[in-house]
């Protein structure tokens, strides 16, 4: 192909993505430096960093930041540990393995609003939910999940959706593990834990770090599960940064402050993205 044609074929994707990135991004940065509230459209003008100050001195900011970190951290620990355990369990031939595999990864394909509703109503509802029925059957008082443990409830829902993702990735990379090496280790009398520690874990080190980084990107942006179940409450107990910014823009109509929050979210995500991009760069061959 002649070089001009190569450039023309590449142009649409590059130009469109460039527009998609630069236009909204620069608008967000611009909005974040002006006074801009849809309820008071007459008050406008450059106000420097006041929106940022307003955003992080908001009494909801600190709880939302902590909630975000707790949410991301707990889901990461749960999904990686459970994902490792389950993928090791099914990494052996047995009758019906294909079915078990499909059952294990299915939750990942359920749309987030559906899984949030299923957990909120049919499982966690304190009156008619299954958990309540189980508690009653055991003679215990049913737990008011969303009322008393809102953040934990969200953590459980998100972990249910994302453990299958970890299982899928770990399962895929376990298939490429050197079986002869494992057999040799077994013959040498190496037990399960010593094999796990010296062979499997090093083999899975990369997939584990990829799973952690990708989940961080997605979990910093968790929205639908909170929107459908707790609406961030009670109070701000289950409000994360994404939801806080959504509230600022859609309910307080404060474009300036919401944009300042948006810039903060972008910076937070970029810190993770730098590591992720580095990890991806090592595998991408051109």
């Amino acid at each position: 192909m002649n070089p001009a044609l190569v450039r023309w074929l590449q142009a649409p994707s590059i130009v469109l993505l460039l527009i998609w990135m630069i236009v909204p991004l620069s608008m967000t940065i611009y909005f974040s430096t002006i006074r801009y509230n849809l309820l008071y459209p007459e008050r406008k003008g450059f106000i420097g960093l006041s929106n940022y100050e307003f955003f992080y001195t908001d009494p909801s900011f600190y709880p939302a930041l902590i909630n975000t970190l707790v949410l991301v951290g707990s889901v990461l620990i749960i999904t990686v540990v459970l994902g490792l355990a389950v993928s090791l369990l099914i990494d052996r031939p047995f009758w019906g393995r294909g079915v078990a595999r499909v059952m294990l990864i299915s939750p990942f394909f359920i749309m987030p609003t559906v899984s949030a509703l299923v957990w909120k109503n049919m499982l966690m509802d304190p009156n008619n939910g299954l958990f309540a029925a189980a508690a009653n059957a055991l003679g215990m008082t049913p737990i008011e999940w969303l009322q008393d443990f809102p953040l934990l409830s969200i953590i459980i829902m998100v972990s249910w959706q994302w453990t299958p993702f970890a299982i899928l990735i770990f399962m895929t990379s376990l298939q490429s593990q050197d079986q002869e090496q494992k057999e040799a280790a077994t013959l040498d009398g190496a037990g399960f834990w010593s094999q796990f520690y010296h062979l499997t874990l090093p083999h899975l080190a990369r997939p584990i770090s990829i799973v952690i980084l990708i989940q961080m990107i997605f979990h910093l942006a968790i929205f639908a599960e909170i929107f459908v179940t707790t609406s961030g409450g009670p109070g701000v107990q289950s409000t994360n940064l994404t939801y806080l910014i959504y509230i600022q823009s859609q309910q307080a109509f404060d474009v300036g402050v919401a944009s300042a929050g948006g810039v903060f979210a972008i910076i937070l995500a970029n810190i993770v993205a730098i590591f992720l991009i580095r990890a991806i760069g090592k595998t991408l061959t051109v």
């Binding site: 590449q10 994707s13 590059i14 993505l17 998609w20 990135m21 236009v23 909204p24 991004l25 608008m27 967000t28 909005f31 990107i217 910093l220 942006a221 929205f223 940064l241 994404t242 910014i245 959504y246 823009s249 474009v255 919401a258 944009s259 929050g261 948006g262 810039v263 979210a265 972008i266 937070l268 995500a269 970029n270 993770v272 993205a273 992720l276 991009i277 991806i280 760069g281 991408l284 051109v286």
Partner: peptide, 24 residues
């Protein structure tokens, strides 16, 4: 080529909420 692809992937890592107001 590699840098372009990596840059493309990096746009996927932008949080949606960061560009909520402009897109809206």
């Amino acid at each position: 080529t590699k840098d372009i692809l990596m840059w493309m992937l990096s746009t996927k890592m932008l949080p949606a909420v960061g560009v909520l107001m402009p897109i809206y």
